[in-house]
């Protein structure tokens, strides 16, 4: 986090992205997003529009997408708001990539529950594949970031790759997921534990067992 900073504005960057504009499809979406807010409050749409812009950049260069400064300036102009306010939002939320990323942005959660459940192994597995925090692999496929809690504690450890979460990971399962992605296939998102659908208790409930079949009233037993 500490070394998170926007990509410097170089002449090459301006040449590449200076003429950024919505695609026809995104222009429609942008209009619809802005219309969700009252007239004159269009700057409230800055967060969805930055996301839209990031996705468009990603689609153009076949990566997860990121926000070059000229693109942020475009969004600022589009919403008629000062560029510094856009930059504040973009730098605040780690959801916005302010530096170039690869095709798959592997965000490993390292917060306490995931760490207790083995996120260190997950990170080691990433390192073993040549991923490095804050860097993109040479083939442009993977960018590794360690992030704080993603809210998947009951299926820890987890990684978020682009729009999908992969949970209940082990080093092998992560390797399988990354291999599939690298091969251009889409692995099953969500928990990787066989037989588990979502974050229900593994092996059945250990508490409130009587509630499984009926709406049991426990109050008399307390």
């Amino acid at each position: 986090m500490a070394d998170r900073h926007p990509e410097p504005v170089t002449p090459e960057l301006v040449a590449r992205w200076g003429s950024f504009a919505w695609t026809a499809e995104n222009a429609e979406k942008a209009k619809e997003i802005v219309a969700r807010y009252p007239a004159g409050r269009q700057r409230s749409a800055v967060m969805p529009l930055l996301d839209l812009a990031q996705r468009q950049v990603g689609a153009e260069e076949n990566t997860q997408g990121w926000l070059p400064m000229p693109v942020m300036e475009y969004v600022a102009r589009y919403l008629d708001m000062p560029i510094i306010r856009v930059l504040e939002v973009a730098t605040f939320y780690t959801m916005y990539n302010i530096q170039p990323v690869g095709r798959f942005h592997v965000q490993v959660c390292g917060t306490t529950p995931c760490m207790l459940r083995g996120s260190d192994d997950i990170l080691s597995a990433c390192y073993a594949r040549g991923l490095k925090k804050g860097h993109t692999t040479k083939d442009g496929l993977f960018t590794l970031t360690e992030v704080e809690c993603m809210g998947n504690c009951s299926s820890a450890p987890m990684v978020q790759i682009n729009d999908d979460n992969y949970e209940d990971l082990t080093a092998d399962r992560l390797n399988f997921v990354l291999d599939e992605l690298a091969a251009g296939r889409q692995p099953k998102a969500g928990t990787q534990e066989p037989g588990r659908h979502t974050v229900e208790p593994v092996g059945g409930p250990t508490s409130l067992t009587a509630m499984v079949t009926e709406n049991h009233d426990y109050r008399g037993e307390w």
Binding site: M1, A2, R4, P82, I84, R85, L87, E88, T91, F92
Partner: peptide
């Protein structure tokens, strides 16, 4: 709107 607060928390 010349000055802004970038990043978050301690950063």
């Amino acid at each position: 709107d010349e000055i802004g607060a970038l990043y978050r928390g301690e950063s």
